[in-house]
Simulated assay, not measured.
Amino acid sequence: MLILGFESSCDETGVALVDASGSATPRLLGHALHSQIEMHQAYGGVVPELASRDHIRRVLPLTDSVMQQAGLPLSAVDAIAYTRGPGLAGALLVGSGVACAMAMALGKPAMGVHHLEGHLLSPFLSADPPEFPFVALLVSGGHTQLMRVDGVGRYQMLGETIDDAAGEAFDKSAKLLGLGYPGGPALSRLAQQGSPTAFKFPRPLLHSGDLDFSFAGLKTAVLTQVKRLANERPEGPATPQLAAALGLAQKADVAASAQAAIVDVLVKKSMAAIASTGLTRLVVAGGVGANALLREQLNAECERRSLRVHYPELHLCTDNGAMIALAAGLRYQAGLMPTTLSEPGYRFDVSPRWPLASVCIAA
């Protein structure tokens, strides 16, 4: 069963081919990705219309590249998967439109895949794939969630963010420091030059007794500290001039202290989730899962507690087509109906706000 996967939910165009034959974990045969970071940097964030247009330009050349890597013709594909949501509506429509049109031309089924399910299952493509059941820390873009995962489609939410997610806290803190887009990686690089104990930033909900997250207060604390360092009034607006008033060492200390606070919450909440479920395996997925400090501290905690921790390969932490093709392949192997069935005419739709619970198997 060869499955071609398309990812176009935001600012990366991803295409990949996996082999889901038999019962073995689907195998990646080809993978191509184009990031739009350089295009969006001038605007300080993703411009949806530009993102959609760039997906249109990139998707077919990337598909050709993937099939060449696999050494197979497009006609060899058995099914086509695409990101149905969540994400930017226009960007999603590019991927779904191309996937359904291609599926119709080939006479093959098309299926919509949940973007977060793709991230959640992406470690199965790593050199050290996990085994069910496990606790999953999903830290992707605007999502920070802890889940119990007992199998494909068998997901139980343990805790999630009630306002800003970890990725948003990274990006917003970076913006306050004038680091541009994408903010998270830039803040992590700058943090290497600073002290994580220079400023005592809050760890929201760390002792709440539940597994939910909240990072909005941390963003406010970073803003307050930046204003203090810039000798600005606390009630004043957050202007671009704030960051310009800070020296490099001050920025580095703020970055390191903010990163330390975010990582501390993620690690301790993850360990609390492990303790509450009694499981011994943790999976970390999503863009923030590539953060070096997060991996370092999770590795140390899991080793101390005799737990196993699994991550996707670094190049598969960002949005990519491999995780979409993989999720479709694992659903196929599990005997589950695809989340969106192809119909006569290959009618396609997208769901920019698609709850992950809707793709779970009924208990």
Rank of each mutant, 00 (worst) to 15 (best):
T13S: 10
L307W: 04
D253V: 02
S306C: 12
A165D: 01
V263E: 00
P73Q: 08
D164V: 05
H34G: 10
A290F: 04
E301A: 12
A334I: 14
P123V: 10
A357V: 13
S276R: 10
A334Y: 14
A136E: 06
A91E: 04
P338S: 14
Q333N: 10
A325Q: 04
Y181I: 07
E296G: 03
P204N: 14
G184E: 07
R233N: 14
L314I: 11
K175F: 14
Q259E: 15
L205C: 08
G236R: 09
A362F: 11
L2W: 13
D19H: 05
G247Y: 12
G14L: 00
A186R: 05
H55N: 03
R154K: 13
L190S: 06
E49L: 05
A260F: 13
L206K: 03
L223M: 10
P26G: 08
D19R: 02
Y332D: 07
F132P: 08
A260L: 11
P26Q: 05
S188C: 06
T144M: 05
P204H: 14
A89E: 02
S276E: 12
K219D: 00
H119V: 04
L74C: 08
Q241D: 14
L190N: 04
L229F: 03
Q333G: 07
Q145C: 12
I262K: 12
R228T: 13
M67W: 03
M1C: 04
A32K: 12
S23M: 14
M147Y: 07
P204Y: 15
A166T: 06
A245L: 00
A20G: 01
L92V: 00
L106M: 07
K108D: 15
F348Q: 14
V139F: 09
T239H: 11
E38R: 09
L4I: 04
G321E: 10
L341G: 04
S351Q: 15
